[in-house]
Design a binder for these strands. Sequence first.
DNA 1: GAGTGTGAATCCTTTCACAGCT
DNA 2: AGCTGTGAAAGGATTCACACTC
Lengths: 269, 269
Amino acid sequence: MATGRTHRPATRSRGIPEATVARLPLYLRALTALSERSVPTVSSEELAAAAGVNSAKLRKDFSYLGSYGTRGVGYDVEYLVYQISRELGLTQDWPVVIVGIGNLGAALANYGGFASRGFRVAALIDADPAMAGKPVAGIPVQHTDDLEKIIEDNGVSIGVIATPAGAAQQVSERLIAAGVTSILNFAPTVLSVPDGVDVRKVDLSIELQILAFHEQRKAGEEAAASAASGGSSAGGAAPAAAVVPPAGRATAVARKGNPDGDVPAVMPA
Amino acid sequence: MATGRTHRPATRSRGIPEATVARLPLYLRALTALSERSVPTVSSEELAAAAGVNSAKLRKDFSYLGSYGTRGVGYDVEYLVYQISRELGLTQDWPVVIVGIGNLGAALANYGGFASRGFRVAALIDADPAMAGKPVAGIPVQHTDDLEKIIEDNGVSIGVIATPAGAAQQVSERLIAAGVTSILNFAPTVLSVPDGVDVRKVDLSIELQILAFHEQRKAGEEAAASAASGGSSAGGAAPAAAVVPPAGRATAVARKGNPDGDVPAVMPA
DNA sequence: GAGTGTGAATCCTTTCACAGCT
DNA sequence: AGCTGTGAAAGGATTCACACTC
């Protein structure tokens, strides 16, 4: 979900569909685990199960990379690990900077899987002068003033933004001006970036809201299923209080056809 | 990307497509910002820009919710905030528990946007007895032993897993057994859960790998563009060292047609 | 016999473009 | 005149199912 301002299919990876690219890291992780257990080969069925996808999809995905399997046998684990790593660009070493060393930034700095696969935390940057010099995860925090120099000196092209929302856009602009062309954004803001820069977003509250949507659906169905019984004492999982009703604003609004006119008994007054 | 074991379209939200659901939180955030600035109405064009999507998509998305706009005018901000909140189930208050209070768990507990929109951190749980009782973000950490009781007492249906990868599957099983039906998983593992449980995954290293893929592509194109010059001194963004070459394993492998036979000068030896 | 690789069919998502309402 | 709401077209992604290879 590369959410830049423009909707370029991110340098349109000639050949490999975006959906496939997004799954390659999954396969890679499963393969790495197999590799550590010294499993020599694996079938599409087994690997798919380990990665949490179905085998047809996996085979189709691999078919975009080339014919790396052996019919009747499966895939050579080591060889596939290498091919996928290469395809993802992980045979290179990517220096990244993390901007914003609060709880989240510190968590990211400490995250092991970071260094493991091709990524190296080249620097930690924070705007708080009190943080400067303090080591986090063994790396001294540097001040935002030196951002440009740090980026250039280390040849950084990938930046991670873990600042408060208010600072994110400005940080991204400075990163980009200094040479960064890929950004992983943890701040809850839509970054607006020039063409040619990739942005990926990780947003806790969006994920939770999506879960809440499905959770609500489940509750609705459950209520519908148990008909018009005394539905209040559902054991296990039921939300609590309610929130403000609609503002008095519904004047000119027709509200013609809500295609989802069910879920009636569930809404609080 | 609800990555459970099975591929149910997550309780198949009759009516609203999954892709639309995933964008509703984005619209909601943009609308909330407008609301705070007391903007009364907004056009699809404006709102789409604020949310980082295009206006046709936005209008189509809203059309699944009902006809909440006014032709020639636009959308009433307050009214739309309410409608989307309701659709997402945010007019209810969802208690969530966070399991695994390391750096990441602490970051999540402190995350403001959490409480703001319908979610309430009901409890923090950690396996380390030394953590027990210590307050994080004003909430005392409780021990894993009491997990089941905590879930039941608070009627929790959404759980957040921020434990190390090794513990995640077991934690998820306990959560589910106790009544949780939606999980947000920050641990880098594929959780295997029964039908009817939704899992969403947030995975830093996967996001980085996807960025690396596109980054590599850019580097390749750039190199191709600047032809066969002395490409080594690229100013701005170039990765460093290399990694192990392919294992000697490539024996039985044909490697017939790699549909992507370009990017030659870029790979290190 | 076992399991890959892939056209063809199906399903989902996005975009277009314009009729219709205010 | 302006902007929404939506059929219809286009484009992707997933699944099916089977020919082909080892």
